Structures are given as C-alpha cells and as structure tokens.
Simulated assay, not measured.
Amino acid sequence: MRIIDNQKEFDQLCLDLEKESIIFMDTEFCRRKTYYAILSIIQIATLNQKIVIDVLSGIKIDGLKNILIDKKICKVFHAPDQDFDILLHIFGKLPVNVFDTQIAAGVIGLEEVMGYGRLCKAILNINLDKSLQKADWLERPLSKELLKYAIKDVEYLIPLHRELSKEIDSRNLWDTYKTRSDKLSDPATYKINLEKIIKRVGVQDRSKEFKERFCHLIMFRENVAQTIDLPRGYCASDYQLIELCEKLPINDDDLSKLNIYQLPIAKKIFKNKLFELCLGLREAAKIN
C-alpha cells in the first residue's frame, strides 16, 4: 500500500493512472459539523497496486479530474452517491464510465440497496469488518488500523467487479444496468430532493399551498446552511421548518414565540430575509 502525501508523488500517480483501463475507488470524509463534506482520503486500487491519497496533507488534487472524466478509464465504486456529491463540488464534473457494484448487485437479483460488507459476504464469502465506519477520518496521523481498513474498501472491489460483470454478461443484463446507473451521471441526482423531505416529515397530506410554502422554507434553509457551511439540521430541523411554515413570522415579536429564535436561520444576517420571505408567503396565501 502506497501513501501519497506530497505533490510530486501525486502528480506522478495521475500520469500513471492515465495508462490504466480500470481503477477501483472510494473516499473517506467527514461532514458532521459542516454542510460541505471535508474530504480526508481517496483510496484507489489498480490490478497492481493499492494507494491512499491523503487529501489533508495539503496536496492539490486537481489532476484527478482528468482521470475521473476520462471515458477510456472505467471507475469502479460501491454506492458512490455521497462520493460523487463531494467530487462534483470539488471538480464541477461527475465521473464518467462508472461501474457501481451496488447497482450491479440489484441488477442480478440481489438486494437493491446492499451494503459493501453484505455484498462481500454474498459474492466473495468474506466477512468484512465495518467497525471503523464511523471513525474520525480527520484525525492525523492516520493509524495503520485505519489505513488497512480503508484500503479494503477498494481491495475487494476488484473481485466484486469481476464476478458481477461476469454474471451481467452471462445473462445479457447490460442494458438494464445502464438504465439503472444513468442517474449517477445526472447532476440533478445530487440536488436537494424536496419531495423526499416532504414525505420524510409527514406533510405529504397537507394542502398544496402549505407544501409550496414549506418548499420555499426548505430552500431558504439550504441557502443559510451553504452560506455558513453548517449542516441543515444545525440551522433548523425539518420539524422546526413545519412550525415556521405554520406561523410565518414577519417581525421579532412573532419570531420570539418560536423554537427557532436562537438558531442560525433566524440570526441577524438572515433574519430580515426570512421576514421578507414569510411576508411574501403570507401575501400569496392571503394570510393576515
């Protein structure tokens, strides 16, 4: 296993990867206290080597973009939605020519949403230790235990890809795989899903007008979270947004009666914009 933590080695790695026809990838990151995930490491395996790129070492990883968007290189991931969300934010582009082992597992008749550990057991009969899944990947130096754990997330992608591809080939299921995997290359996949939030918080049976107001407030919270780089829930929970949607405060007196009064969404730099939004929503709904 190679640890890449300096620019010279990283730049050479990118040149080497350009010669590969297939690479196996994963990332580790942290977003517990931020809106935008902090990328910690990138794990890459080829058929000949295993590599961990220490992104927090200060190296510039721009050179990886050309690898990710190179159509000649197949990139194998497992359930890369969160990885791609991060890579899209960093590079402004999504990887192309991707093989997702989770989607492939569903295509051949296994569980539609199958975790990496369960898939390794089902296909390779390997019991994968996932006890460090919640580890602090921002901690430095990275322990040997963490590095060993991280590299296994790409090491077993090699035989998984081989076995899943073989099965898809033998059953002529590549068209099905392509249909299901097209979402990975669609930037809309990584945008906030308003309908999903509405269902999750249980307001799908409210009036159309209420749901429209609720969506406006969700997007307002999104802007706040992005501006101050804090998780959405830190700015206001989904259920606090429901209360906000019901009351639509337009002044300090209204706001002081709500549970969000001390939250970032109601702080000084956003408060007036919140009042303006709520006033507009009141007028649209003809609420006094």
Rank of each mutant, 00 (worst) to 15 (best):
C30Y: 12
A188W: 02
E209F: 01
C245L: 02
I192P: 00
A104T: 06
P80H: 06
N97T: 04
N172Q: 14
D253Y: 12
F24Y: 15
Y156P: 08
C120P: 11
L47C: 03
S170H: 13
Y149G: 04
F29I: 05
L157I: 10
Q133G: 11
P159W: 07
F29D: 00
E145H: 10
Y190I: 04
W137F: 13
I192Q: 10
E167D: 12
K166E: 15
N172V: 12
K183G: 00
L138M: 11
A45P: 03
L258I: 07
C30E: 14
L157N: 08
F214G: 07
D81H: 04
S131E: 06
E212W: 12
A37N: 04
K130A: 12
E9W: 01
V107L: 10
A104L: 09
L110F: 15
Q226D: 07
W174I: 09
Q240M: 15
H78I: 10
D129A: 05
L157V: 10
D182A: 12
K199M: 11
D238C: 03
K50S: 09
I86P: 05
I44P: 03
A150I: 01
R2F: 02
D83C: 00
F270M: 06
G92D: 06
K93N: 14
E283V: 13
I260F: 09
V154H: 05
I265G: 05
A285L: 05
I103Q: 06
S256W: 02
Y177H: 10
V154L: 01
P249E: 01
L255K: 08
I265P: 04
S57E: 05
K247T: 07
L39C: 01
Y234S: 12
I287A: 04
L68P: 09
I103E: 09
S256Y: 09
I86Q: 02
C215R: 14
C74E: 15
A150R: 02
I151W: 04
M219F: 12
L230N: 09
I242D: 09
I44D: 02
R140P: 05
D253G: 00
N125D: 15
K75W: 06
E243R: 10
D229I: 01
D81N: 06
K72L: 04
R118C: 07
M1C: 04
G202L: 03
I218T: 09
K65M: 10
K75V: 09
F29Y: 12
N288M: 10
Y239V: 11
V224I: 07
A150W: 01
L142H: 01
Q82R: 08
Y234I: 13
D54T: 05
F99I: 02
V224G: 02
Y36R: 11
I250T: 12
C14M: 15
L184E: 01
N66Q: 13
L94T: 03
D169Y: 10
N66S: 14
C215N: 08
I42L: 00
G202N: 07
H161E: 15
I61P: 01
L230Y: 13
V96W: 05
P95S: 05
E276F: 10
H216D: 07
L94G: 04
I67R: 06
D205H: 15
S181K: 01
L15F: 04
S237T: 14
S165F: 11
R200E: 13
E276V: 13
S40K: 01
Q43E: 05
M25F: 08
L47V: 03
L279H: 12
E167V: 13
A188N: 10
L173W: 09
F220R: 07
A225V: 05
I197S: 13
H161F: 15
I44W: 00
K273F: 06
K121G: 05
